[in-house]
Design a binder for these strands. Structure first.
Lengths: 132, 132
DNA sequence: AAAGAATATTATGGTATTATGGCGATCCAA
DNA sequence: TTGGATCGCCATAATACCATAATATTCTTT
């Protein structure tokens, strides 16, 4: 699978957060969406680091959107949630056992690159506002 | 990752097989491509079942292409190699723990569907001949 | 100061991927 | 017809990653 639950949770959370008027806490969000609290907290933190969410500590704190939903590419959300960009096939990861050791220059490299580019472009051009 | 090594091995194998004039055995192919024999054998068998490869037993047997490379969608190859179609995100697999239990009708379903369709279309229209 | 809430770190069970080995069934060729 | 070559199938090990849990710490508002 290209995406894991982290991305699902991230997108669902953002949908709830954008509808709220005040900051929402991780725990409340976890309850509303029936998502494990700890797991969600980590995802929200990553979204905040990426500049997608703003986090406020202390009483009446929580998370809120940091920018306009039409200025947040879906790509950024997924990258933050997964901790890496969604990849078709990661040659580098298999460097040790790449047949012939021809990383990036084998018969199927052009195909993989083109495929990857298609996906990246799609996710870059699409904003959170477009899909909600 | 969207694809596993099974797809990589399948595509590399098909590239070698199409260049050969006589059937190639699984063992020889494994040696040439530096791929574990048993693992490769299973993949080749799946490609044969799918009608992409033809298998010949006995002396001077092996695998050869069953049809023209421009009539083999990359989608079919991946499906055969992976044992399933490449999915962006499989909601059904998480049916038990889907937030709100709204499978296929949550806020992000339309996005997931559109994304999946893009990938499917890309792989359907692309043939083995196009990428080699 | 005290309470509320994010932040950070570590650990763990489960599951999919990846890889291996062996043996039987089948087929071709001499 | 006989023997070697090859596919076909099953069971299993090892590895890696996903998803989750638990806990302690830091920060901020009231």
């Amino acid at each position: 699978m290209l995406l894991t639950r982290a991305s699902e949770y991230a997108l669902l959370s953002l949908d709830t957060i954008r509808k709220a008027e005040a900051p929402i806490g991780a725990e409340q969000l976890a309850n509303e969406l029936c998502i494990p609290k700890s797991f969600l907290a980590k995802i929200l933190q990553n979204l905040a680091k990426q500049g997608i969410l703003e986090s406020r500590k202390g009483a009446h704190g929580g998370f809120l959107l940091a920018k306009d939903i039409y200025k947040i590419p879906v790509y950024d959300i997924i990258f933050a949630a997964e901790g890496k960009s969604p990849t078709v096939f990661d040659c580098a990861q298999y460097a040790q056992t790449c047949p012939n050791g021809t990383i990036g220059s084998c018969a199927i490299s052009p195909f993989l690159l083109k495929f990857q580019t298609r996906i990246d472009d799609f996710l870059f051009d699409l904003t959170l506002g477009d899909i909600l």
